[in-house]
Design a protein around this nucleic acid. Sequence first.
DNA 1: CGAGAAGTTGACGAACCTCAAACGATGTGG
DNA 2: CCACATCGTTTGAGGTTCGTCAACTTCTCG
Lengths: 252, 252
Amino acid sequence: METPFLKKLRHGAALTADDEATLVGGLRNVQSFAADRDIVRDGEQSDDVRLVLEGVACRYKLLPNGARSILAFLMPGDFCDLHVAILGRMDHAISALTACRIANIPRTTIEAWTEHHPRINRALWWATLVDEAILRAWLANVGARRGDERLAHLLCELRIRLETVGLAHGNSYHLPLTQQHLADTLGLSIVHVNRVLRQLREAGLVSFRSGRVTISNLDELTRLAGFDPGYLHLQGSVRTGGMIEGEQALLG
Amino acid sequence: METPFLKKLRHGAALTADDEATLVGGLRNVQSFAADRDIVRDGEQSDDVRLVLEGVACRYKLLPNGARSILAFLMPGDFCDLHVAILGRMDHAISALTACRIANIPRTTIEAWTEHHPRINRALWWATLVDEAILRAWLANVGARRGDERLAHLLCELRIRLETVGLAHGNSYHLPLTQQHLADTLGLSIVHVNRVLRQLREAGLVSFRSGRVTISNLDELTRLAGFDPGYLHLQGSVRTGGMIEGEQALLG
DNA sequence: CGAGAAGTTGACGAACCTCAAACGATGTGG
DNA sequence: CCACATCGTTTGAGGTTCGTCAACTTCTCG
């Protein structure tokens, strides 16, 4: 089976056919959410871990000052709340940006995976740590770049991430966000996002129309963004994984 | 033994005396670093995981535009690079802010811990996930608050984190940073940090002089920051931990 | 066709940055 | 002990980035 889920996790560990069957077998209890519905609420204590099968969702925080901050985009193959099993309580909410199909994986299944399937355990760690690496890249992005550079960086990142799960081809991809979503993500106002989009379009770098991103000059966009995809840890990680598994076998 | 390391990890799992002895036993190979020295370089591939025993360090990224973005403060008890064993390569660097004592833990030790000591495994997951939660809080902080609010939020967070490891008492703590460090952390210029510090001091909220933070009005500082410590996952997490361990015992 | 949502534009002001200079503390060599 | 250098802090002036407000246009969908 070629779900985005497997396509993604293969970057994190050298999964066997058995591993993949085990993973796919855990994807029951599929739920559908309409756009703009909360999938997980802030403060919630849940016994299931959720995974995006189709659609796009986001993590977000509502701050006391009324601002909404989008902390991550969750694409097909991304886990919503691997942490909730350990931390016990959500410190942010998750909302569907488009209609979503979400798999609910019981915590006990996750625990069985991590105890009895070392490559799956590794893939889950990898997914968690890549999420953290993306967070660091976003923090540097909003902390140290101008609005146009921030937007360019985000569009470069999403191109790669969507390509990884087979949802982008070449320099164009579907991105069902409003300018308000981009604003809440980049720490800008919606008006400024609109102006920056126009600036990038008129400079011939990228256009964003009716939910589709089309990059017309990837080199220049990458340069403007200062984008280096190393933090996504996509290439070479599987090789290292093999070495570590070898060592684990020696240990065990 | 009452190292900050144990004080911190006890919040993540109900460690037994045996667990604690195992953890302390892994802390060999202690290295010292002078202030301003890199502990781990960007792009490095390491076989050890490092832990701060004494001093303060930081994660940072240097962006192509020349800016330096500080992504985390590492206090005694914090891991520097638990992720490097899985991801294979650092996507940022770690530098000593003050003179530091750093423990080097071989990757094989970490792997033995996570395989054979479920409560330690849980504590390491907890530490990683709390780091991620702090990153989310920082991202929302720089993305959605003004300079004065950002600084107030950071000072509130550090007070709690330092108290957790026994390094803050009441409303004052030692914080060996320059205003340039604060600027790189908050996404502000050093000049603006200076002005905001003055504003907070003159408003009677907090002062920062020669490496010491003194909070004179914690309630008002908390209100200005919109600070809610829930994301640090400090209280109640151990109780939940006990429940989960119970279930794991049933499973095993 | 109408209503609501999203996008677009202009005018103005607030937050923040850069440049530059002065000030203060600390440490070092003479 | 003083002269001096260095590093961090402080303050002012002027400019850029970005936000707010408000109006208008375009799109979408029933």
